[in-house]
């Protein structure tokens, strides 16, 4: 275990978040079992008031999660100096492979809690709160993910030993090992670019289509496309965006770009990507709930800003990628 300030901050923050969500989940469980909409008893009223507490707790919890994801990457990036062979976050993560799972679980928790908040937001806008039970059931389901996240994070930091000699992005994302990561990095640039731009364009096109047509099918497609855009973008970042940013044809690291030396360009890149994907998935995820008439009408109103957000962030993300390609000193294709 390394007593790095960032690690202590993360662990303290995660424990607090967990406690808050735990409180929310327990309250949620009580609401779940005692909720009776038709009752006008004082007890029902107190349950209703508790729902405000649950939303507040989860809101803060998610905000802390977003901040902790950033702090996690920042810390992991900073502690690379402690390991022989590590040049950036990749090296620190390799120093104890649980780190990769911790990172994945952080991403998963971000999306899941984001979806939950969207459901909560929509449901609380309906007079009869039709999804209270679903909502609190899901909240209880969300809790184990947070626990898992904390456990992974804890064991990752616990298992870090500065004596470890690790390998860094050079070998992980280099061509000559046969891990998943290196095969991602060795995805040839041209096909990766084509797929990235095609999918991005598809997402923009679908956003507009979804704005004008009410079809459910379109929305499901939109969600699937958004999710694929996430995967494809990550592949694209490792495969070609990175080398344009670093201006080195062999440097495929997805974390270095978060460092000051590269003007923190990674942050807007990842933020826009996450937002685009998140908002792109929402309309499709809410389609099954449209059978409720009230939900249907309210969704058609709330959906629009979601689509705008997805559209805007997709455009921003793609512009950023295009910008780095155009203004990079690296030229892969000479004309």
């Amino acid at each position: 275990m390394i007593l790095h300030p960032g690690i202590i901050g993360l662990l303290v923050g995660s424990v607090i978040t967990l406690l808050m969500v735990f409180h929310a989940a327990v309250t949620g469980a009580i609401v779940l079992y005692r909720w009776d909409f038709s009752s006008s008893s004082q007890y029902q009223l107190s349950l209703e008031r508790k729902t405000y507490l649950v939303s507040t707790l989860v809101n803060y919890g998610l905000a802390f999660q977003v901040a902790s994801a950033v702090l996690f990457v920042y810390t992991v990036d900073d502690i690379h100096q402690l390991f022989v062979g590590a040049m950036c976050a990749t090296g620190s993560l390799n120093a104890n492979p649980i780190g990769w799972y911790a990172l994945l679980s952080k991403i998963a928790v971000l999306f899941l809690s984001g979806f939950w908040l969207a459901l909560n937001y929509v449901d609380s806008r309906l007079e009869e709160s039709p999804y209270v039970k679903l909502k609190y059931g899901l909240l209880i389901g969300l809790f184990p993910f947070l626990v898992l996240d904390l456990i992974l994070q804890f064991f990752y930091f616990l298992g870090l030993d500065p004596a470890i000699i690790t390998s860094c992005c050079g070998s992980l994302f280099g061509g000559d090992s046969n891990s998943v990561a290196s095969s991602v990095a060795s995805v040839p640039v041209v096909p990766a670019m084509i797929v990235f731009y095609l999918l991005g364009a598809g997402l923009i096109f679908l956003s507009v289509a979804v704005l004008y047509f009410v079809s459910d099918l379109l929305r499901y497609l939109y969600a699937v496309l958004s999710a694929s855009f996430f995967v494809v973008s990550i592949v694209a970042i490792i495969s070609f965006v990175s080398i344009y940013i670093y201006e080195l044809p062999t440097h495929h690291c997805p974390f270095d770009m978060l460092q000051r030396g590269y003007h923190f360009v990674g942050y807007p890149l990842y933020f826009t990507l996450f937002l685009a994907v998140y908002f792109g998935m929402l309309p499709g995820l809410f389609c099954p709930l449209k059978r409720n008439v009230g939900m249907n009408t309210i969704l058609s109103k709330i959906e629009r800003p979601w689509i705008y957000w997805c559209l805007g962030n997709t455009v921003l993300c793609m512009s950023l990628v295009t910008y780095t390609i155009c203004f990079s000193n690296l030229t892969l294709f000479s004309d």
Binding site: F37, S38, S40, S41, L45, E48, R49, S124, E127, S129
Partner: peptide, 22 residues
Amino acid sequence: ARPTQGKVIIAGKDVAKLPERF
């Protein structure tokens, strides 16, 4: 506040069972 029983109809809409927010 909400009643224990009965209807409160304001401009044609029963508000007796509305959640606080509404």
